[in-house]
């Protein structure tokens, strides 16, 4: 932890992108779980996630980044899934 003598006056953050070091995943009480078999790769989850916690590789949904996912459930709500079956379900943490 920094001493007061080491701080930048005005609390200006002089480094870009430092918020990446602030991991918010521990706030989660429910976690989204991806059921690949029901996924149609529409990327609605990626579009709606407020925390950029949907991992997309080469244009494909591949799972979640649990370091930043706060468990809001927006992705699960928006996911159309396949034939009425959701590709994202929320499960309680610690279960």
């Amino acid at each position: 932890m920094k001493k007061w003598t080491e701080l930048v006056p005005g609390a200006v953050v002089l480094e870009a992108g430092s918020s990446a070091r602030f991991k918010t995943g521990s706030w989660r009480t429910f976690r989204p779980v991806w059921l690949q078999e029901n996924c149609i790769q529409c990327l609605m989850c990626w579009l709606y996630c407020p925390d950029m916690a949907v991992k997309v590789v080469d244009g494909k949904m591949t799972g979640f980044d649990y370091d930043y996912c706060k468990g809001c459930g927006v992705c699960a709500k928006e996911c159309p899934g396949k034939q009425g079956k959701k590709a994202i379900v929320m499960e309680p943490e610690g279960k």
Binding site: W4, V12, V13
Partner: peptide
């Protein structure tokens, strides 16, 4: 040199920033 103003500073550093303001 991109930078940010107005970060959230909680119990771990707020007291130190106010000490700096006093200085």
């Amino acid at each position: 040199h991109p930078k940010s103003f107005g970060p959230l500073i909680l119990t771990d550093l707020y007291h130190e920033y106010k000490r700096l303001q006093h200085e």
